[in-house]
Design a protein around this nucleic acid. Sequence first.
DNA 1: CTCCAGGGATGAT
DNA 2: ATCATCCATGGA
Length: 296
Amino acid sequence: MKLVEISAPDFDLPITLGSGQVFHWREAGNGFVGTIGDQPVYVEQCGEILRMSCVHAEMARHYFALDHPLAEICASFPDDPTMNAARNFCRGLRIIRQPKWECLATFICSSMKQVAHIRQISKALRERFGVAHNIENYIVHTFPPARRLANSSENELRECALGYRAKNLLATAQLVRSGEADLEAWSALSDVDLRTKLCELPGAGAKVANCVMLFAYERLRAFPIDVWIERVLRQKYFPRARKLNAQRLRAFTQEYFGEHGGYAQQYLFHHARTALRQSGASRDSSTSKASAEALA
DNA sequence: CTCCAGGGATGAT
DNA sequence: ATCATCCATGGA
């Protein structure tokens, strides 16, 4: 198939797709296959050039957020050792623009799940309820629309390894299908009102709402706090702080990380999850055992 | 085998 | 208003 080339400076495709913000892309040939909305896509990167199967290159440019002024965004991060290490490690990582329902549904399935599990659930939902397409001799599946999942049963969803999340996904799918939850119209809401609306959906609390705001609504200030980020905050920004509740943590992140806090959060998350996995993540401060294991 | 994961809803203080 | 518990599942 003929590939289209577009310029993509200051962009790292593998790190962007592998940073835990999106879960359906898989390696294929020299690049990745997946979907952008209902379009099957093959995409590969060579230096500052992106080659893709897209008929509509503009759609991919928008999806991968190649218009984000990444240098300015990174420069707006706070200047401290932890943030600087993450910023250096994640060079070229962009927060992409995901379809709203797809993003919401996926993150409802994410609670108490490792990234590998979320990828597996996303795959199962797509293969069972989505539409299959052939791209570059690979089969990819679109994410099923809310009406499709709303018409399924809780048991069918459980067969996709959703566990107790099945009931929530089904209930939210029905709210979206009925129009009671109008995800597109919510784009006009303020951050506070949007978060309130998202939190009213079954299976969505503050963390999921912030993920959806950041990854699907372009609210780059939204700062999801999961177990990894909380670990980083407590260890690096509040070493030996007693009585540090969620409210206090949230207030700190909002004022300290600033207008692109969500971006900063994603850099901290990916750095902690990939680079610091063995050596830095142990709960107690005695590092002798962890260091010995890291060297083994 | 055990541990724990991009949490949320519910009920007890 | 905060805090503890339970919820399913499977990769590491």
